[in-house]
């Protein structure tokens, strides 16, 4: 079976030090373009770079969402994440966020808005597939819930996503 990941590498997992660059990129964009600019960057990234993921989710629905995140976190060094699925929802129980873990282990200053990227990127991936995501927690562990989008779904309360540090 083909991997649910849109891009493939020769190694089973990525290099953890790249979390330094992801964190630094967020800080730089927020410093230069403001929080609105950073959120626009995340949304553009989810909409364009991750378009193949949205296409897959549109075709496979929530089963595709679950398969994607299982493969994704298997390729992230240090991740401890439980993915559960039901007919109406996919839940990611992020017990140990690999990025926050690695940044802390190396005493890096973490961009306070770091955890918001999960919402803005994933929502941009989910929207074209008729799905939506809600996130609670952050700063090392969180719960992410993917479900079908409908008019009664409350908007994401960003105060439910913790500042990182």
């Amino acid at each position: 079976m083909d991997s649910p990941l849109p891009y493939r590498d020769r190694r089973p997992q990525g290099a953890a030090d790249f979390y330094f660059a992801i964190n630094a990129t967020f800080r730089f964009i927020q410093d230069r373009l403001g929080l609105a600019g950073l959120r626009r960057y995340w949304t553009d990234l989810g909409t364009t770079y991750f378009a193949p993921v949205a296409t897959s989710w549109k075709q496979r629905g929530l089963a595709g969402v679950a398969a994607y995140w299982r493969a994704f976190f298997a390729a992230e060094p240090g991740a401890e994440v439980e993915v559960t699925e039901s007919p109406s929802v996919v839940t990611l129980n992020v017990k140990v966020c690999p990025a926050i873990r690695h940044l802390r282990e190396h005493h890096r200053q973490i961009a306070p808005t770091f955890c918001q990227h999960c919402y803005f990127v994933s929502e941009a991936m989910a929207r074209p597939a008729g799905l939506t995501v809600r996130i609670a927690g952050g700063n090392g562990s969180c719960c992410q819930t993917f479900a079908r989008r409908n008019d009664s779904t409350p908007t994401q309360d960003l105060t439910q996503i913790e500042e990182a540090g």
Partner: peptide
């Protein structure tokens, strides 16, 4: 989440 398995992809996109 964006991760490190495809870091070079979104890094290049960011340029």
């Amino acid at each position: 989440m964006i991760g490190v398995y495809d870091f070079n992809g979104h890094y290049e996109w960011t340029f």
